[in-house]
Nucleic acid binder design. Structure first.
Lengths: 336, 336
DNA sequence: TCCTCTATTGAAATCGATTTCATTTCTCTT
DNA sequence: AAGAGAAATGAAATCGATTTCAATAGAGGA
């Protein structure tokens, strides 16, 4: 059965489509007997307004696109939840793109903004360059970014204070008595790597300790990378009693290396990661980690972006920097 | 700047909108100089066909809705990936609903089928009842289900052979010398719980062992539930040397209980779970688990559903039962 | 050169709902 | 009871692209 259209309802209720539309949209113009008739007809025909007709006329899809590199990673899933929940509350739906790190796919998805399949787009992708993103930004295309700061007149960004993360981790480790602390970054050019390293250095120096470049290595954000980086660090013959890894995956790699090298955590080596992924609580000892307000980041940016989309005036760029929390556990607290 | 419409391109190229449309859609009718002119105009205006206009006319949104109870759970994320990738390959996009187990939200999302926001819908939700789903199924609404079998003339389903999972786990445990094996199910009425229990029982009996109802308990699919169920089982004074939990979360609970009760795994207690989540490889000893072909399930169902949506004739109901693989690890293989 | 037949092209209808603007119907006053 | 003003209703335009069907231009044959 073809579903019924507004004209069918109109005929059945013996009114015009305009009147039906008014009833549907709660206009105060239609009341009493007429309204009754229309409601009756709607009910009898089990009529539901067609979304496409509505969207075409209103020039709105009430849909937000979200691009992530991998939906299976807890980091992204949590952000998506924040976005989705907030968006749903504001009557928006979520179109997802799991790019699997293919920039092709990400760029293609961006074009959904241009053809108006989505009203706005949120990017959670470290890989696109600023200029690639700028090329899609337009007075009239709403883009928002999470996990990264970008300088553009009207692209809102929500990210964490990476410098502060670095400082707090180092501070925490110093409180535990460490003064030779290594740092394993992710990709060298990732803002997260750089910011956390910056904080690491700042805190060391402001504590009067010397910053030793040899105590830093690169682990590409994954377990294997962390494992290898740790081994390289050890090979340098520079003493250190603690490692700060820019994420938990690399901390897991450090654990693996320590197990192989018979280095006990935390007695001989303290470890602190970032993201506080679930596994940190299931390994022995539990991995101390910095928890980022991911859900809140998603929720906040979704709200601001939708605001901006519906606001008549486009405000100046909005930057939202949120703070993280260090969760001290067994890997950095002796007897903890 | 308002984006340009087909009429703008038409004027610029000095042809009619019909001709522009033909060029856009690769019609062989327009060629040579005319085609050139149009392409030129499209380029100059940076024209992109508006999706809503297109959709309204074609009565297709090229969008698939996906309802999951929690996007953050690896089980769902993997299925979504399978769906998304396949759908994208067929030019479909994915609209996600993370219901957080609220049936309200799931039902609301189902109405997107009715108002034609999506062309089809895939449900990965154990909680809606068959009849609730049936009430939305219609000759003309395409619904597919993953992880559950449903009997309806045209709702395709993709699920795993739960009985076989139960049988294979028990078989594996018997091979390791166990003959008193406990079973901890998830929610009592979940098809996964029931099917796995069925297989558990069948295999025991076909091996000539007695099936002992006291060796079964319910753990609600989460860690805490598994923990409690294991303690209750122990309290019954019925000997057992192995536990089969209907998922890995509950196996983690069993680990916790064993640690408390100083029961060593696998020496005094073998454990096997289902889902093979990542954590199973990070605890000591690693948890043996059954890996389901989740990605494949998502991919397969997406393909079949889209086929069905586009096929002129609606075939009889399609049921796809896939098989899982047991991954034997330390928790069920001594010295393994 | 004229005519027929084919290859291109365009005008207008369509998809389904909303909204403006004009028209009709009421409701009060006096 | 008549007229002014307010309230309710509908006709038609609109959103943007596609497609049918009719019309035109062009090619080839006689």
């Amino acid at each position: 059965m073809r579903d019924s259209k507004i004209i069918d309802v109109a005929r059945k209720a013996d009114v015009s489509p305009a009147t039906v539309s008014r009833v549907l949209n709660g206009s105060p113009l239609v009341t009493g007997k007429t309204k009754e008739k229309v409601l009756q007809a709607i009910q009898e025909l089990n009529y539901t307004p067609n979304a496409m007709g509505k969207q075409l006329r209103s020039r709105k899809t009430m849909t937000l696109g979200v691009v992530v590199t991998d939906i299976g990673v807890a980091y992204n899933a949590e952000i998506i939840k924040g976005i989705e929940n907030t968006a749903n509350g504001l009557k928006y739906k979520i179109l997802i793109c799991d790019s699997q790190n293919e920039r092709e796919k990400e760029l293609e998805f961006l074009s959904l903004l241009q053809n108006r399949t989505v009203d706005g787009l949120i990017l959670v992708t470290p890989q696109l360059t600023d200029s690639e993103i700028f090329s899609f930004a337009d007075e009239d295309y709403s883009i928002g970014i999470i996990g990264r700061q970008i300088n553009h007149p009207f692209i809102p960004c929500c990210f964490t204070d990476n410098i502060r993360i670095g400082r707090e981790v180092v501070q925490h480790l110093m409180e535990q008595g460490h003064c030779r602390i290594a740092y394993i970054s992710g990709y060298a050019d990732a803002p997260d790597s750089i910011g956390r390293q910056e904080g690491y250095r700042e805190e060391l120096e402001s504590a009067g300790l010397t910053f030793i470049p040899e105590l830093m290595d690169i682990g590409d954000f994954d377990e294997q990378g962390g494992y290898e980086a740790f081994k390289r660090l050890r090979a340098k013959n520079q003493e250190f009693t603690a490692v700060f890894t820019a994420n938990d995956e690399m901390a897991l790699g450090v654990y693996k290396a320590c197990a192989e090298l018979k280095i006990s955590v935390p007695e001989s080596m303290a470890v602190v990661g970032v993201d506080n992924i679930r596994i940190t609580n299931y390994v022995e000892p539990k991995i101390s980690s910095v928890e980022q307000p991911l859900y809140a980041m998603g929720a906040l940016l979704a709200e601001k972006l939708i605001d901006q989309m519906n606001g008549s005036v486009r405000a100046e760029q909005q930057l939202f920097m949120l703070h993280s929390t260090i969760m001290a556990k067994g890997s950095s607290v002796k007897g903890g």
